[in-house]
Design a protein around this nucleic acid. Structure first.
Lengths: 115, 115
DNA sequence: CCTATATTTCAATACTTATTGAAATATTGA
DNA sequence: TCAATATTTCAATAAGTATTGAAATATAGG
């Protein structure tokens, strides 16, 4: 991790909430594998075996949380992960777990859990 | 991050879900600051301005998710964060965002978002 | 311009989760 | 053992979230 600002508590909440649903977590993992090129909504739906409307619901949930973004390509809407958002969320946890903890001179963080 | 196994998808889901509630996210952050020494349930409740029963509900939710642990000390139950669990969850995201991504030879991860 | 394709929207229903306050449990110290 | 303290449990209610299928919107190509 480098110089990303941490997510605010409200952002973190929104994003944890977005990731706390099986279909959405799978969407994110699938889109991570697809890279910045992304994947059309319909392809995601068939890969995950979900209906289009169900996927659309979860995709807009993820987009609202800032974890994915979309662009139109012809008839398709291509979704892709917003990598900095994932990174910032990681950092939010890491900060709380280790970095911020050390900065505050507490000793509760077990060394092997940090960095 | 070092040699922690990643959380499984089911674990990650349980933990993201636990973190996706305002009171619980605040509990975790408060307990992180308290270090391995932890904090009695009642103190957490008064710091967060919540009722005891409400806090108890959220604390057992967090404990069930493996994010906090408890021990009895006299009349009090002391709660503390399970740091390796937080670290593993971070790693779950980091892996998906950057490491696993690079390993799979995709180019979507923006360099400044990784490590 | 008409039809097929891709996706979203919507309303109804079902499901899950949170809040409240009162009662129950457990521990301590007098 | 009794009263006080600390916390949990429980049932009722309230609030939030997901699923379904049908209808609506948007784009593309013949």
């Amino acid at each position: 991790m480098q110089n990303h600002p941490h997510a605010t508590e409200a952002e973190a909440l929104l994003r944890f909430s977005a990731l706390s649903q099986e279909t959405r977590l799978r969407i994110v993992r699938l889109l991570v594998m697809a890279g910045h090129e992304g994947m059309p909504a319909g392809t995601i739906a068939s890969q995950l075996g979900s209906s289009d409307s169900r996927l659309s619901f979860h995709l807009s949930h993820l987009e609202h949380a800032g974890l994915v973004q979309s662009r139109r390509d012809g008839r398709s809407i291509i979704y892709s992960v917003v990598f900095p958002a994932l990174a910032a969320l990681s950092e939010f946890l890491i900060h709380d777990c280790c970095r911020g903890f050390k900065e505050n001179d507490h000793a509760g963080c077990q060394p092997e859990s940090c960095d």
